[in-house]
Design a protein around this nucleic acid. Structure first.
Lengths: 225, 225
DNA sequence: GTCTGTTTGAAACATACGTTTGAAGTCAAC
DNA sequence: GTTGACTTCAAACGTATGTTTCAAACAGAC
């Protein structure tokens, strides 16, 4: 059995189990028994459980961030100095995610859920790792968002970006469960691509909402600068 | 030391620790040492760790769901048979949350984060508990949302509600941290009420977005029913 | 075939967890 | 002052975890 075989089988099993159950709730023994390798193999090949978590993310994120940078490059080239629109920027992101070569049919949704978990489960080491390794494309995405919404005040834009991240991370982090519910209730199959196709218009509309108080709550002191 | 003292101190410590670190990542020993009570007190007063988690949710959700039902009653009375608008429904919810009597200044944001975790961390027992105990007001909220957005297909509405929940739970769950960042970066103070005032228009705009593909991704097969 | 560095294997290690136990303490009622 | 129900306490229990150990198996080079 070649080394890469054991390593890849550990990564495959870990990826799926982490996505299903979260990081703390997945033990090395679950991973190694699913991967049909010896327990010690994880610490031999990766060094620690945390390092394994990093490796799972790196296997997807490294090619993805390269693809994303290229997509941003193309987008900015196409716009010839004009800042790309909000929709163009959001689509560049989702397209890059959707077009990544998949190991299997569940590839994207598994990884979307992992990203959501990374954001919600406050694993300090993981956040630090992601920031260090993939902070650059993220900053670039933020800059594009800023240029695409010049009408927003810095404060409004700040909060609305948080709302966007929240809707995305949250939906993706539970998308398998949500899909199951949807299928049982409404008998509809849904792919990640379709979720993204619904999410982007929602986000774009929210980002560009008029920020007037449509119905000020009676009696409460809500003030908007 | 009266019983209620120990019980409340356990609940206070558990609430805060769960919100900070998640359920599995918080041990009974952390809780009891923060609460300055004996380790066995948790199992004595609550029976198990899972029952403690339920109690933490019940302490907030039981009065909240009563307040919410009253707010919905008033709203429907005021509308005299007409279905309340989306903005009215959202405001009824956020006002009920904001007006809940707080144990401390972090009250709402802590509980928002707990709700987010309940949704994200797949704790089967917790989801079952919440469904059983508080399914009614939730269903009512869903019904109001449905009546307020008759133009949406069931599938569109389903997903957009998930996006709303995500933006809300995510933002509120980390609003303390976000507020700090905002104050440091932009020198602006922000209250939970003001965040809500920004969030509701964002959500309303997203819910009512035209679901046309504004910029169909070139070449990819995204279909929207 | 033998040697050498790498990988696997079964077992043990130390630690942390949720839970249980039984004695000690508390406090009001009688 | 004694009783009896309720609460706290220190200690232990059994189990599960991440990690380490070291011998066995393997593979390619000579």
């Amino acid at each position: 059995m070649a080394q890469s075989d054991t390593v890849d089988r550990i990564l495959d099993a870990a990826e799926e189990l982490f996505a299903d159950r979260g990081f703390s709730e997945t033990s090395l023994r679950m991973i190694t028994s699913k991967a049909k390798v010896n327990l010690a193999a994880v610490n031999y090949h990766f060094g620690s459980k945390n390092a394994l978590i990093h490796a799972v993310f790196a296997r997807f994120l490294t090619p993805f961030s390269a693809t994303l940078e290229k997509a941003f490059d193309e987008l900015e080239d196409r716009c010839e100095g004009q800042p790309p629109t909000l929709n163009q920027t959001l689509w560049a992101l989702t397209e890059s995610a959707v077009r990544m070569p998949q190991r299997n049919e569940k590839g994207i949704s598994i990884f979307m859920r992992l990203l959501g978990l990374a954001y919600t489960q406050s694993q300090g080491h993981l956040r630090k790792f992601l920031e260090q390794e993939y902070g650059d494309p993220f900053s670039r995405f933020m800059r594009l968002l800023k240029e695409a919404t010049p009408q927003l005040s810095a404060v409004d834009r700040y909060w609305r970006i948080q709302f966007m991240l929240g809707a995305t991370a949250f939906t993706m982090s539970s998308s398998d469960a949500l899909r199951d519910i949807l299928q049982n209730k409404l008998g509809v199959e849904t792919t990640v691509q379709e979720i993204a196709a619904r999410l982007v218009p929602f986000l774009a509309a929210g980002m560009q909402a008029e920020d007037t108080m449509l119905i000020p709550p009676s009696g409460s002191k809500v003030s908007v600068a």
